[in-house]
Design a protein around this nucleic acid. Structure first.
Length: 115
DNA sequence: TCACTATATCAGC
DNA sequence: GCTGATATAGTGA
C-alpha cells in the first residue's frame, strides 16, 4: 500500500548541506575529521560554510557531527555552542568511540580521518 | 544586499 | 602562544 509512505517528513536542506552530511557520515567510528577536510572533500574552500551546515544538522544523530573538529585539533563547537557543557559532551562522545582528547585537543593526530 | 557564523590563516607582539 | 584582522563560502531575513 502506501501510496504515500511519508517517512518522517525529511527536512529540507540545500544541496551543499547534503554534501556536508554525506561526507560527515563517511567518518568511521574511532576517527575524527576537521571542518577544512570536510570542506575540501565536498569541493569547498570555506570551512565556515561546513560549520554552518553541521550546526543545523537536521539528521542528528545520524550524522556524527561530533566527529568533526577544528583543524587545530581543537573540539570546535557542538550543539550550537563553542564551549561549555556542550563541548564536554562532545569530548565524552568521542572518548566512547576511542578518540582521546588531551587538554581539549586531539591526543593522536593519527585518528584524524582523511577522505 | 546585509549580517551572522561549530573556521582558517597571517601579522604583530 | 595569544589577539586582532582579514579571507572565504553559504544561509536566512
Amino acid at each position: 500500500m502506501a501510496a504515500v509512505t511519508q517517512r518522517k517528513t525529511e527536512p529540507v536542506v540545500t544541496e551543499f548541506a547534503a554534501r556536508v552530511y554525506a561526507a560527515t557520515r563517511r567518518i568511521p567510528r574511532g576517527y575524527v575529521s576537521t571542518y577544512k577536510l570536510v570542506a575540501a572533500a565536498i569541493g569547498c574552500r570555506s570551512s565556515r560554510a561546513v560549520g554552518q551546515a553541521l550546526r543545523r544538522n537536521p539528521f542528528a544523530p545520524e550524522v556524527p557531527c561530533h566527529r568533526v573538529i577544528a583543524s587545530n585539533l581543537g573540539l570546535g563547537g557542538f550543539s550550537g555552542h563553542i564551549s561549555g557543557a556542550a563541548l564536554i559532551r562532545k569530548r565524552a562522545l568521542l572518548r566512547q568511540e576511542g578518540v582521546i582528547f588531551r587538554n581539549g585537543r586531539l591526543a593522536d593526530e593519527r585518528q584524524m580521518y582523511r577522505f
